[in-house]
Write a protein that binds this DNA or RNA. Structure first.
Lengths: 138, 138
DNA sequence: TTATATTGCGCAATGA
DNA sequence: CTCATTGCGCAATATA
């Protein structure tokens, strides 16, 4: 949807360089006041998802990477599609021009044919030679 | 695909019981660094970003609507673009077919012309206009 | 089962 | 000020 505008990249909130080893970053309620965040997700399976866990952070980081990658790809694809539209439109014009040319050529030839046919008819019809204007070069 | 049946996804970090006095649940990720959550975004007079504020919630909700709308639109546009590609491809095929046809017709007519030209040449060669045996069917 | 890829959604900064 | 865009993180889900 963008790409038309030159908006491009803007600064964002934090320019954090995605530090793999980012200690800080608190979801706000690690071990502070509320211990268990929303106590357990569901009483379903034992899905340990300790938000303070190292494992958790690591998984999050990986997913964030994947998300970014996926979105980039998506954007690129959209761009390519738009480009293809332009390309096809261009080719379309070219083809139409060609058709126009061919049609005109064909028209000329057909007219010539008709002309000859008439001349022939005029020549053959009467037993005598052709009238004032005969075939000839022109 | 996805399109999950709206499983309460938003409830996660927003399950706040709206405790104005207990700033809980922050989306994470501090802006410029570990800024404290105090109600003071920038050096501006407006400190209207109390998360528990009614005004805040209202603004958030409106923005969420806008975001959703914008994304829907974006998606739709991408879809339309893709559709246009298909349409253009189809038209291109049609045009190419037409070109092929015209080219063939033109070729036939040209051949006929050449043939006639040869016949004429043969007939003109001798001074006797009346063609004894023309190359009609030949 | 685990790891990655997609997708919907909310938040905040910024553009209009 | 309001609304529209956009980058980003989270979690659910889909795919490998």
């Amino acid at each position: 949807m963008n790409q038309s505008s030159s908006t491009g990249s803007e600064g964002l909130s934090d320019a954090q360089g995605s530090s793999p080893t980012s200690p800080q970053l608190v979801p706000l309620n690690p071990g502070g006041g509320g211990k268990a965040p929303p106590p357990s997700k569901h009483s379903k399976k034992g899905q340990r998802m300790d938000r303070g866990s190292d494992e958790y952070r690591q998984r999050r980081e990986r997913n964030n990477m994947a998300v970014k990658k996926s979105r980039l790809k998506s954007k690129q694809k959209a761009q390519d599609t738009q480009q293809r539209v332009n390309q096809l439109k261009e080719e379309n014009e070219r083809l139409e021009a060609k058709i126009k040319l061919l049609t005109k050529e064909l028209s000329v030839l057909k007219d010539l044919f008709l002309e000859h046919a008439h001349n022939l008819a005029d020549n053959v019809q009467p037993e005598g030679p052709p009238p004032g204007q005969e075939s000839a070069g022109h």
